[in-house]
């Protein structure tokens, strides 16, 4: 895996976000952490792109770097044709309302000392001139996400985790964004509540016409909400395809290992099991970054990094020796 390349980017006129060769590196005392290395992807209007991978694969950093938090070390992020990496702080700030975000921790993402009303209306306060600044908008949103508007003067700690996540969704929607980045939005919730939030996200997507970048470590959740899914490993793209295609016919050995590890999954046939430990992100393996744990790795994988290539229409993989598409 561990592949690079931009062959899978689409020439659709509806492309909202196009990320090319994005690299994000952090300096730490022990060296440089290669969090995201040469990742490319795009997002078409109305689409949900799922990014899945294990902890440390850079999925969250990738999504956050799209909105320049942190700024990518190199590469371009174009939003509706404008390169966000070239913008100054103030210009970037003007674009922020278009790309909103929902965070993992429902509690830490709401300021404990502000009321729900203040939290949701913050965007309108900042961008008073933009759109319709009105109490009705807040009320409508609260109702849409399933929070009784009578509770608008309450503080976050008076709500449950699921309700806090609803408030976060309302806050993200208030500025009428084009894209919402959902960073593990249901990981901290119980399964029964998780289903409520996932359904709500689908409804809001429909109702307000937003596109989603949905990050999760949970494959079944990602499959449920996504149109396309990108699998990442150690800051690289492994495989990207339509959701159903990817889950029915995974060809990357890492994707296959991930899928066979889903708890309760009825594993059929030969399961790909992962051997060994995750290598250090400071000194990632040469060539294909997955080769140290890949059952099919050869000398070729050590020397040459695989490029993204198409195995079936719309199904892209970065592997020299992908599994047969069964």
């Amino acid at each position: 895996m561990a592949g690079s390349g931009t062959a899978h980017l689409r020439d659709d006129p509806d492309v909202l976000i196009r990320v090319e060769n994005m690299v994000v590196e952090f300096s730490i005392p022990g060296g440089t952490v290669h969090a995201v290395s040469d990742v490319s992807f795009d997002l078409v209007e109305g689409e949900t792109l799922g990014i899945v991978g294990e902890s440390g694969c850079g999925k969250s950093t990738t999504a956050r770097a799209v909105i320049q938090l942190p700024k990518p070390t190199s590469g371009t992020v174009s939003y509706q044709g404008r390169d966000l990496t070239a913008l100054g702080n103030e210009e970037m700030r003007k674009i922020r309302p278009d790309v909103q975000m929902i965070f993992q921790d429902p509690i830490s993402s709401l300021n404990p000392r502000r009321t729900v009303h203040d939290i949701i209306s913050e965007g309108l306060r900042v961008w008073g001139g933009r759109g319709v600044w009105s109490e009705e908008r807040i009320e409508e949103l609260m109702e849409a996400v399933g929070i009784d508007p009578r509770y608008s003067e309450r503080k976050p700690h008076q709500f449950s985790g699921g309700q806090c996540q609803r408030i976060s969704i309302a806050r993200a929607l208030v500025l009428d964004p084009k894209v919402i980045i959902c960073d593990e939005p249901v990981s901290a919730l119980d399964v029964s509540v998780q289903a409520q939030i996932l359904n709500l996200l689908e409804d809001m997507k429909e109702r307000y016409g937003v596109s989603l970048i949905f990050i999760s470590h949970d494959l079944s959740v990602v499959k449920n909400v996504s149109d396309r899914v990108m699998v990442m490993y150690m800051g690289k793209v492994c495989e990207i395809a339509q959701s159903d295609e990817l889950f029915d016919h995974p060809v990357h050995h890492y994707t296959r290992a991930l899928m066979s590890a889903i708890p309760g999954a009825q594993v059929t046939g030969q399961a790909d099991l992962l051997e060994g430990e995750l290598p250090s992100a400071i000194e990632p393996p040469s060539g294909c970054r997955f080769r140290t744990r890949c059952p099919k790795a050869t000398e070729h994988c050590r020397v040459e990094e695989p490029q993204v290539r198409e195995v079936s229409p719309g199904h892209w993989v970065a592997c020299h020796f992908p599994h047969e598409r069964d």
């Binding site: 289903a195 409520q196 449920n224 909400v225």
Partner: peptide, 15 residues
Amino acid sequence: SIPDTSHPSHTRLQP
């Protein structure tokens, strides 16, 4: 209420 990978994507969940 648990999403199932054997269902097609965008299957409505039952919370």
